[in-house]
Design a binder for these strands. Structure first.
Lengths: 124, 124
DNA sequence: CGTCTATTCAACCAGACGGTTGACGAGCGG
DNA sequence: CCGCTCGTCAACCGTCTGGTTGAATAGACG
């Protein structure tokens, strides 16, 4: 098992059908059957997709009669954005630094002024 | 082939080893052997991972003697952030709206599910 | 009770995935 | 030229994945 949350979320969203389900769930909660309707697959397949999304923490299911309304848990997105932003920022900073280095032939790499204060996604 | 860029990027980053390689590449370009060093797998496996990252547009390889320095292409991150932010925003807005609805309690509210085909060519 | 609807579980299948080993091409260096 | 290192290609293997069909469970309803 992948176990680690980031992998689960990324791989959950690596599937177009699952991404589309997530997209639709941003509009409203839906039952499995409702979700399955637009797609050209069986409801069982959609149920599996939902399981994947649920294990990734992207959706939750409640119980309402015999229906299982699916609800989006959008906070999980933050997990990804945190990761992405962190390394994007790091990459950008590196390019700036490289530019500097190329100018002066390095013997000591000096931390260049970060134009963006690391407040948005400052992870550990 | 999944073909669609978003799926390629998400699934490329769904692997911890690949994520780690990307993380390291934000610091500096590296050769395949350098990249492979920390991991407990053969250099061939790493080469495969790089192929995946390259096909996702996350890295590019140049040629320098018999070495193939790997370079991160960080702009691709924007593809993901665009998607994520879009739907996160949409979800947040929906919650606000729902809150509103719950306050006024109309009796003719019905869930409207805009049929969205399982395709990710983000229609804008 | 029996049945209908909504959903999941189980078994199966083809294909992709991550890994291996082994062989091969490209360049440097003796 | 020979040999070495760097990297990829090819074949193979076990596991995961996305899909199927068919059966099972849970609750509403007559």
């Amino acid at each position: 098992m992948s176990a680690d949350p980031l992998s689960l979320v990324f791989s959950a969203l690596a599937d177009p059908t699952r991404r589309d389900m997530v997209a639709r769930l941003t509009v409203a909660d839906a039952t499995v059957n409702e979700l399955a309707a637009p797609y050209d697959v069986t409801v069982q397949a959609v149920s599996k997709h939902l399981k994947v999304l649920e294990e990734a923490g992207l959706v939750s299911r409640s119980r309402e009669a015999q229906r299982r309304p699916v609800h989006l848990e959008a906070e999980i997105f933050d997990l990804m954005t945190a990761w992405i932003e962190r390394y994007r920022r790091q990459a950008e900073e590196r390019y700036r630094r490289l530019d500097d280095v190329l100018r002066s032939m390095p013997d000591d790499v000096e931390p260049v002024l970060p134009p963006n204060p690391p407040e948005t996604g400052a992870p550990t």
